[in-house]
Simulated assay, not measured.
Amino acid sequence: MTGDIISRLGASPRYHTLVRRRSRFGWLLSGLVLGAFTVFTLLMAYEKAWMASPIGAGVTSIGVPIGMGLILFAIAMTALYVWRSNTAFDSEMAALIAELEP
């Protein structure tokens, strides 16, 4: 019976649309995180003096809050994916499976 549902899912255009939407969303968020890490790496490589300059009269450099922001950004993108997956994608998949069950 499970194999029957799987074969019907494979033939369903709604399933393929859902998979495409989920993949596109995942790749978009991955690209954003990769881009942010790439910019940070390039700043570290080519703007060392600026990244090492202290904030105000303190000893903390500009690179520290930027790096912390980068980590928080990656966590936020992961949380966004999990939230969207749990709310939109999983409910659509459950509805599709319920529709295809005999």
Score class of each variant (00 low, 15 high):
residue 14 R to H: 09
residue 42 L to A: 14
residue 100 L to Q: 02
residue 70 L to M: 10
residue 11 A to N: 12
residue 31 G to A: 13
residue 10 G to C: 00
residue 54 P to A: 06
residue 9 L to G: 07
residue 42 L to C: 14
residue 10 G to R: 06
residue 64 V to R: 13
residue 79 A to S: 06
residue 4 D to L: 07
residue 55 I to L: 15
residue 8 R to T: 01
residue 4 D to V: 08
residue 81 Y to R: 13
residue 57 A to H: 03
residue 35 G to M: 08
residue 40 F to V: 12
residue 95 A to Y: 08
residue 16 H to M: 13
residue 49 A to G: 01
residue 36 A to F: 11
residue 88 A to F: 15
residue 84 R to D: 13
residue 60 T to K: 00
residue 4 D to T: 12
residue 82 V to I: 15
residue 62 I to A: 12
residue 16 H to E: 13
residue 88 A to C: 06
residue 93 M to A: 14
residue 7 S to Y: 04
residue 77 M to Y: 02
residue 21 R to A: 12
residue 4 D to S: 14
residue 90 D to E: 11
residue 96 L to Q: 07
residue 3 G to E: 08
residue 41 T to S: 02
residue 33 V to K: 06
residue 18 L to M: 02
residue 96 L to S: 08
residue 52 A to N: 07
residue 67 G to S: 07
residue 1 M to T: 11
residue 44 M to P: 02
residue 61 S to Q: 13
residue 71 I to D: 02
residue 3 G to T: 09
residue 75 I to F: 13
residue 65 P to Q: 03
residue 21 R to T: 11
residue 48 K to I: 09
residue 88 A to V: 15
residue 101 E to A: 15
residue 56 G to T: 03
residue 61 S to Y: 02
residue 32 L to F: 11
residue 56 G to S: 04
residue 25 F to Y: 13
residue 100 L to C: 04
residue 31 G to M: 08
residue 6 I to V: 15
residue 19 V to H: 06
residue 62 I to N: 09
residue 57 A to K: 05
residue 91 S to H: 05
residue 45 A to S: 14
residue 97 I to P: 08
residue 14 R to W: 02
residue 53 S to L: 00
residue 12 S to I: 02
residue 58 G to I: 09
residue 33 V to M: 05
residue 59 V to W: 03
residue 87 T to V: 15
residue 41 T to I: 11
residue 87 T to R: 09
residue 57 A to S: 14
residue 16 H to G: 07
residue 30 S to P: 00
residue 19 V to W: 05
residue 101 E to W: 03
residue 33 V to T: 10
residue 20 R to K: 11
residue 26 G to A: 12
residue 51 M to C: 09
residue 54 P to S: 05
residue 65 P to C: 08
residue 5 I to P: 03
residue 63 G to W: 01
residue 34 L to Y: 06
residue 92 E to W: 12
residue 11 A to S: 09
residue 91 S to L: 07
residue 72 L to G: 07
residue 61 S to H: 10
residue 62 I to S: 02
residue 71 I to W: 05
residue 21 R to E: 10
residue 99 E to C: 03
residue 82 V to R: 10
residue 21 R to N: 10
residue 13 P to A: 01
residue 54 P to M: 03
residue 1 M to N: 11
residue 3 G to K: 08
residue 37 F to E: 11
residue 9 L to R: 02
residue 19 V to A: 15
residue 76 A to Y: 00
residue 49 A to V: 05
residue 95 A to Q: 11
residue 57 A to I: 10
residue 91 S to Y: 03
residue 71 I to M: 12
residue 1 M to V: 06
residue 71 I to Y: 00
residue 3 G to C: 01
residue 6 I to F: 12
residue 38 T to S: 10
residue 77 M to W: 02
residue 57 A to Q: 06
residue 54 P to I: 03
residue 96 L to N: 10
residue 33 V to H: 00
residue 43 L to S: 13
residue 88 A to R: 12
residue 26 G to C: 04
residue 61 S to V: 04
residue 35 G to N: 03
residue 90 D to C: 02
residue 91 S to G: 00
residue 96 L to T: 06
residue 36 A to Y: 05
residue 95 A to T: 01
residue 86 N to Q: 11
residue 11 A to R: 10
residue 28 L to E: 06
residue 54 P to K: 02
residue 32 L to I: 11
residue 3 G to H: 04
residue 55 I to A: 10
residue 26 G to R: 08
